[in-house]
């Protein structure tokens, strides 16, 4: 029983650690691609937490085997959820990466602080002019 408790603590603690580390990359790092990597790490943590919640010690994988003695099985619902979440996650990450590529072409940088400065710059200031010189034009606001 003690062993079971420590497995649960390890899994939940690992999932929470992944979420916190990924969140650190999102809020404290400045490069946009590093932010997206942080989002990927958060996704990994959430997926681990869901699958760990459906785990049952001593149970078999949720695949029926006519020859085997029918014992308890782990919960298949979190696994199905996580399966779709993984594929959705990579599609959304790819969308974010195309946006990052587009931003880099438009503004020439992926540093979030520099991007905030450029976007908030009043028209006619040096930053705004430098952006227009890069052939911006799509920037209307």
């Amino acid at each position: 029983m003690n062993e079971l408790l420590s497995i649960g603590n390890l899994l939940y603690g690992g999932a929470a650690g992944l979420i916190v580390i990924g969140l650190f990359a999102v809020v404290a790092r400045r490069h946009l691609i590093r932010v997206l990597l942080g989002v990927a790490v958060i996704e990994a943590g959430v997926n681990l937490m869901l699958v760990a919640a459906g785990f049952r010690p001593g149970a078999a994988a949720p695949i029926f085997d006519p020859q085997a003695i029918s014992g308890p099985m782990v919960d298949p619902i979190p696994q199905a959820l996580v399966l779709t979440a993984i594929v959705i996650g990579v599609a959304v990450l790819a969308l974010g990466l195309t946006l990052a590529i587009r931003i880099h072409r438009q503004y020439g940088t992926l540093d979030t602080v520099a991007l905030t400065r450029i976007v908030n710059a009043p028209a006619g200031s040096p930053e705004s002019r430098a952006m227009m010189q890069r052939g911006g034009g799509g920037h209307e606001s």
Binding site: G8, M49, A52, A53, F55, D75, I77
Partner: peptide, 11 residues
């Protein structure tokens, strides 16, 4: 996380 049950029977 501390309040989550682990290894419980499925819902």
């Amino acid at each position: 996380v501390g309040g989550l049950p682990f290894g419980a029977a499925p819902m």
